[in-house]
Design a binder for these strands. Structure first.
Lengths: 223, 223, 223, 223
DNA sequence: TATGAATGAGAGTTCATTCAT
DNA sequence: AATGAATGAACTCTCATTCAT
């Protein structure tokens, strides 16, 4: 469906070795971030990939951009889960399936969680939320129409559920790698149409983005 | 000129000014951590307390120990909420009131959240959980007996709910400082006796402690 | 004449060892800058002083501040030359003596030249020029009144003469350490009242400051 | 398709595209150095020329050699000015015209100034001074014979005047791009035959070359 | 031959912790 | 006991130069 830039002929394709190294760096970042969190140094990541620091800086202007690349990958995957979920007939199963899929990936990868939760750049947030919110809104709307999702549910609720389950996965870690499923099920109770009314309305999408953009930094600002 | 308090007892009580400085440091840490998170430097905290860094190191072997002192305070407060909650007649209100009180404090104080969630030392964890778990177990048991709390609820569930709501507060931050209440209410739905069954059993307390002890570091290990 | 801050009692005096180290750092900076120019690293300077880098950063927030300290010293000395020059009866001897004294110091110290010529901060420039320009203007005015200095001479002319002679000293270096005197004498010819008229008027002081502030950087901007 | 120029001679002339690239690089270096000084990176220069860095290194062993090529060009131009000046009848006008022309070019091009003042290689210096000194000596001698130039003037005086005026241009920069003319005029006063005697004799040419060769580096030594 | 990817030493800067005053 | 100066490892990022494609 989408033309890659190479196919479009506008940008010359990346050299094969460079592409390989870029991929190596992203893979190394995932591994190292997964093990040691975002505070791992670019130097360590580069060496983990068998490359020099300079190479890392050729591919990514700074640590944040490397994180962005990880995010891009993860968002693609999450969008995929949303599309799959929309293909299901049962709207409740759609919501459940989406969260289950998207969170299984995040639960298994601390680096990914930190990188997604540490997303701060307003433009990047807008881009990503644009891709996701239409799909999520559709998932929720289908459920509301059939009376299985609470009427006041908003995309930001899905965002906060992800936040919460990521936190559970952070704590569960290797000791209880599946425990997040228990708490996702609990949260889903709260999303059902017949759940009790809630003391606060959901955040609008702009407010949710603003909150994400201003929440605590996990990585030093680039100079 | 004359020695008095030192000479007085065998277990020499802390000198009054030393006690004062210790308190000043803890208060300063709370304020500074609340504003800027755990990444604030000890130097800043000490000066915020009107003291030198060296003095901070006389009272606390390292940054983590200062954090521990904050935890001690916070746990006292949380224990207080639990006792208050047990004094209520309605067991559901007990659980709700406890979580509401304990989390309101944490939601308002980023440093406290980080310090509580960053708790790692096994001995410290054991000490704290010992104090809390008996109270929390009692809160839950009362609810189970009256059929308002799900039968399989465990103290670790309360721990994870706190974890989740702290994560919401981290994101909500100053943009939406009360949004955590929405998600606490959702989580409570999942704790009700009539909620759907869950895909995973709760963690036992030792497992929960083990998970806490191994989860991601928020502060560099002392050298 | 001037109260030091210690004497004023407002600021507690710097600890003796700290003061010693500060002086060591400034001395080391002078030596190292003199040898290798401003591009020498703070690390090298610190080690040259027998101290760690961290110590350098305790005394000076960044490399530029260390340079500023050198400037401060040098400006004091230059102000001294101006005052001495004003004490002379012969106004021509005043101008000559001032330039000769101030430039002898700079000619002998490459680091000082670079640091003075690399002065960029507008506020610092203003402060320094305020101190100097009144003295220099007085020196020139005395000469104009007696008809020994050209009527259109301005403080900025003195600034540019210094610039020029510093450049000569840069080239002369150790090979011809006194050669600058030849060119200072030549420049003085151009300042005499009976010299030919010039194709361009002197820069006003604000313009001179603007030029100094925008001319090429010798040292990276602090982050 | 058919090889021609390579096959043609024993000393293989540079291929046409290679010559074009060399020229492109020199032009790019001039532009980029003019704007941002010698600290511009070779990468930027190469891309400004529409080429890769690797190509730059095929033509020039290192950054300094590229600078040398710029010097070569500039010296050609300066030699031209000297020849033009010798064609004038009035020997004073010859000296003035030469300096005015040669310095106008340098005043307008920061990169050129840096590159000329940063000339260090003894062989290169000798080559260049050989080309220039005979012309300059002739210019001066004509003036001395007619009694318009001071009798002790030497080619090194012209070199130092250029040094001084370049320094003025460095400071004047974009704020006062013509201010150097004022100071060139002042310096010329000092070259007149009737100027006061000077406290130091001019440097001999070998000494001047030695001074140039040892003066402060503007560019890191090649590894 | 031309390209640009890779390299790694080195710069500026921060901060937990130690230790002399 | 209190102070704050000193330390140095660690981190991010730059760029001249080399080398695989």
């Amino acid at each position: 469906m989408t033309l890659t830039s190479e196919a479009a002929g506008l940008v010359r394709p990346m050299r094969k070795d460079a592409a390989r190294n870029r991929a190596l760096l992203i893979a190394a970042a995932r591994e190292v971030f997964a093990q040691r969190g975002l505070e791992a140094s670019l130097d360590d990541i580069a060496h983990h990939a068998g490359l020099g620091v300079g190479t890392a800086y050729r591919h990514f202007a700074n640590k944040r951009e490397l994180a962005s690349a990880l995010i891009e990958q993860a968002v693609d995957q999450i969008v995929g889960f949303a599309e799959d979920a929309l293909a299901l007939d049962d709207p409740w199963q759609g919501v459940v399936g989406f969260l289950d899929g998207a969170l299984a990936v995040q639960a298994a990868d601390r680096g990914l969680r930190e990188v997604l939760m540490g997303l701060h750049d307003p433009e990047e947030l807008e881009r990503i939320h644009e891709r996701l919110s239409v799909l999520i809104r559709e998932l929720l709307d289908r459920g509301k129409k059939r009376g299985v999702i609470r009427a006041d549910a908003q995309p930001s609720d899905i965002g906060f559920v992800m936040t919460m389950i990521c936190a559970v996965a952070d704590v569960g870690g290797d000791v209880a790698p599946e425990i997040w499923r228990r708490y996702l099920a609990m949260c889903l109770e709260g999303l059902k149409a017949d759940a009790a009314s809630l003391p606060m309305p959901a955040l609008s999408e702009p407010d949710f983005r603003k909150a994400m953009a201003t929440h605590k930094e996990c990585m030093a600002r680039p100079t």
